[in-house]
Amino acid sequence: MVSALSASLLLAGCQAVNTTSAGAVGVERKQYMFSMLSTDEVNNMYAQSYQKTLGEAQSKNVLDKTSAEAKRVQKIADRLIAQAPTLRPDSAQWKWEVNLIKSDELNANCGPGGKIIVYTGLIDQLKLSDDEIAAVMGHEIAHALREHGREAMSKAYGVQLARQGAGALLGVGQDSLALADTVVQYSLTLPNSRSNENEADLLGLELAARGGYNPNAAITLWNKMSAASGGGGQPEFMSTHPASTSRIAALQAAIPKVMPLYQQSKKS
């Protein structure tokens, strides 16, 4: 029997897709995307917001493009981005960007279309190794490859349409900047579902391994994140990427699947 949510999504003009290949980790869940919110449209809308964020950082003199740490982040990102088409071929045509912002914030993200921001607080305060930085960025890139933000927008639109029979939600009919802000909300601001987090964990693990980064670093990363959460102030990253008691266990179970990819990458 088709669920009420599935029916509303179909009514809203959603299509069943799978944005990425299953990979070695076996992510095969079908996704429902609202046909009026195409990949290119969402990517372009988010690009507007991304440039606004960079402009604000530049005006405050906190956009770091030249330091050794900025070059370190760029090098790690480049290796991961090179592997993204293995899971999603069309990502080779994305206009990827990587930027480091000087801030005490413990956060990093990759928005639709491959727009990455890393905050220095995450690296410095948690004393992240290259492998751990790759684990964070791999996870974030996986969210973008799977289009979890667009998927969340599609679900919300389907529910709204089923309730009201009209498309006021998600900024339809509003100006492009308002719609860009909506993309940010659904892609980066709202907490991710457990299903989406699991997919990003698994695919991020594979990206890091293919890029030559030790997948075991995902375990040490989340241990550091959990320790930081218990220290009185929850990292911003944890508010949108909630931890669970099963997360580390799931990662540990998946590491043997990607370890051969890591070992092969070290030989090449």
Rank of each mutant, 00 (worst) to 15 (best):
E132S: 09
L126A: 04
A82M: 10
D131K: 05
Q93G: 12
E97L: 09
E132N: 11
I101V: 15
C110P: 02
D130Q: 11
M137W: 03
E97I: 05
H139L: 08
Q93R: 14
A84M: 10
D90Y: 12
V136I: 14
G121D: 06
R88H: 12
N109R: 14
Q125L: 13
L128K: 06
G114C: 09
L128S: 10
A135Y: 00
I101L: 11
I117D: 01
S91M: 08
H139E: 06
G138F: 01
I133K: 02
E132R: 04
N99A: 15
A82I: 06
N99S: 15
K95S: 14
D104V: 11
L106F: 08
D78V: 08
N109Q: 14
T86C: 09
D104C: 08
K115F: 08
D90E: 15
N109M: 14
L126N: 04
L100K: 06
D130L: 08
W94L: 09
Y119V: 05
N109H: 15
A108S: 10
V118F: 03
L80N: 06
A82V: 10
A135P: 04
I116G: 00
K102P: 06
S91E: 01
D131T: 07
A134R: 01
T86I: 12
I81Q: 01
L100F: 07
P89I: 10
L128T: 04
I81Y: 00
S103N: 12
A92G: 10
C110N: 03
P112T: 09
D104Q: 14
